[in-house]
Design a protein around this nucleic acid. Structure first.
Lengths: 336, 336
DNA sequence: TCTGGCACTCGATAGAATAGAGTGCTAAGG
DNA sequence: CCTTAGCACTCTATTCTATCGAGTGCCAGA
């Protein structure tokens, strides 16, 4: 591979990606010569495309068809031509601001609404993951009796998100004991992150200690439970691909939420915002790309939003949308 | 339409449906003569099929193809041959029992797990709707401070389901006032159905009255909020249809949860368990059938489960699955 | 009333022919 | 040395034709 990407080759690669994203059809040299700003003959373009193909940026579906970008080609395109700051079609995105200035209800709805917004903006499948349970700060703990020996534990965090857990007690308790324990636990742990629940020293009251112990166990379990995920617009993958079995594969994969979550985590942990086709490392998603962005609340990355579409996606637009939405979400949550 | 459905015609119709459901291919007279228990010649079958077609039970994709059932044909099949009580392939369904005897967490997970179970059993898209908010019995009301003038209201119902609502107060309150109001409201309304919240007489304490008033408002809003819906296995529609645009249409429709909910409600309100193709009255779902069943907790229908698949679905199996799962869910929730 | 026989219809499949988009290569011109 | 016009070549997509065969409707005879 003699990597010598001069500016003309780059321009050609860029044009190929743009055209292919637009029309979903292999683009040929003469088409490029006509359409693009490159002022050379189709023959020259042919030569350059040949080299680009040998270097792995382009490929031909078959001899005597035009070229389409490879994953590597998309990667170069994204790294080189898609500026993070530029807001592509800002006009179209006015609705984002509007969306986030409107008041919103519970956090869960906020996330699923955000997911819906993203899917509407981009016409691809959108994913929003909520804050990881460990980082949550406890605001209030309530024990509510469901049965003589069965209690519902409610934990409200600093953002107003409610987590719940039913727990079976070893002995019967009455309402007043529950109320007492609720107050005690809330006072004790208010402001503590769910992730760092220490042991509790004895309060002197055996009955109370017992109840608190069991509640603490439930809280620890809560912490380990799966992150919340909101996936919307999965139906759009049916629009993104013609082959019905590609649609099947991708949809089936998207239904496995944990897979999607770890996918997004992986991409972010590599410091990337975009992962393309084979880079995802998930065979059924070989024809997909993922664009992700963490959102930041009070200086901390608490969750992320992502977008799953075909490798042949409008990267500038999608990146802009994802960035704007993640910024909006972070800001909105910071005000909270 | 000379409706004279003798038993032989019925047997032929039944065989056509069975074969078509199995192979997804138009079934011809000679095939039936060979395969089925009907001991007449293909010519006779042809004559009967001709009549069945004229009566609207069968149709031909084109001249000189076999017959496939119409919606009317499926309807007759379901009404006549699918016995409610019979449990088709009970062997396969052993997992249902197992599923419902295992303990389960919060109700929300219960519903989405149930939805997943149904989709796994049938390979179609499953819908579970939670209890309608109005019928819920209040068990506990908690007010938790989020900000000086912002409060999170939690309502736990008799099943341990938590509903929440943020409310903006007209004046500042302190923690002790919130605690007092929580206790007051809980005592006052424990056991009352959310649907019948009456006005409250004054308690004598102006501060408290005010807070309770605002809380009541929030509770009333809660009541009006959308039913919870859990749809799983939507990806299966990609398996059910070959035409990619049918897949698109159906998926897009399933994403509109309110549509699905009202669809299920409509079917149930007509006292039906099965709605077929055009009977649904939703154009994009013209090639789909829906099988629904309410589930009963303590003698009351509190929600429903449903299944969306192609008109060409295995009705006996699906009906058995839906019935068993709804029974299981109802029983499980009654114990709760 | 049923059934075997038969002519007929029409989609599906396979081949052959054609058109055309696009390529790689070569040779001439700057 | 780089560019470009020209050209032969390749290969898909399209169209057309011919053929096959599954399935039908109808009729005449048991």
């Amino acid at each position: 591979m003699s990597e010598s990407m001069d500016s003309r080759k780059a321009a050609i690669l860029r044009a190929v990606v743009d055209e292919y994203v637009k029309d979903a059809e292999p683009v040929g040299s003469s088409h490029l010569a006509r359409i693009s700003g490159i002022q050379v003959s189709s023959a020259t373009i042919r030569n350059e495309m040949n080299i680009l193909e040998h270097d792995g940026y382009l490929t031909q579906p078959h001899t005597s068809a035009g070229r389409i970008p490879t994953d590597k080609g998309y990667r170069y395109y994204v790294d080189t031509f898609v500026s993070e700051s530029e807001n592509s079609d800002v006009m179209q995105f006015r609705s984002i601001e509007e969306f986030f200035t409107k008041a919103h209800g519970a956090l869960a709805e906020m996330f699923s609404d955000t997911s819906r917004l993203l899917t509407k903006l981009t016409n691809y499948a959108a994913v929003v993951t909520g804050p990881s349970p460990e980082s949550k700060l406890i605001r209030s703990i309530q024990l509510i009796s469901l049965d003589t020996k069965k209690v519902l534990l409610l934990m409200v965090d600093s953002k107003g998100v409610v987590e719940k857990k039913t727990l079976e007690l070893s002995e019967e308790v009455d309402e007043s004991a529950l109320e007492m324990a609720s107050n005690y636990l809330t006072k004790k742990f208010r402001g503590a992150p769910l992730g760092t629940l220490v042991e509790m020293e004895s309060s002197g009251n055996l009955r109370l200690d017992n109840l608190c112990m069991e509640s603490l166990g439930a809280l620890r379990e809560l912490r380990g439970e799966a992150e919340s995920v909101y996936i919307e617009g999965a139906a759009n993958v049916a629009n993104a691909f013609d082959a019905v079995d590609t649609v099947r594969r991708v949809l089936a994969t998207l239904e496995q939420h944990f897979l999607v979550v770890s996918l997004i985590r992986d991409v972010l942990s590599k410091g990337q915002k975009v992962a393309i086709g084979s880079e995802l490392g998930i065979e059924p998603l070989a024809e997909c790309s993922v664009v992700v962005s963490p959102y930041v609340v009070e200086g901390e990355r608490v969750g992320s939003i992502g977008l799953v579409g075909p490798t042949r996606m409008n990267y500038p637009k999608v990146l802009a949308a994802v960035n704007l939405v993640s910024a909006g979400l972070g800001k909105r949550l910071s005000e909270g």
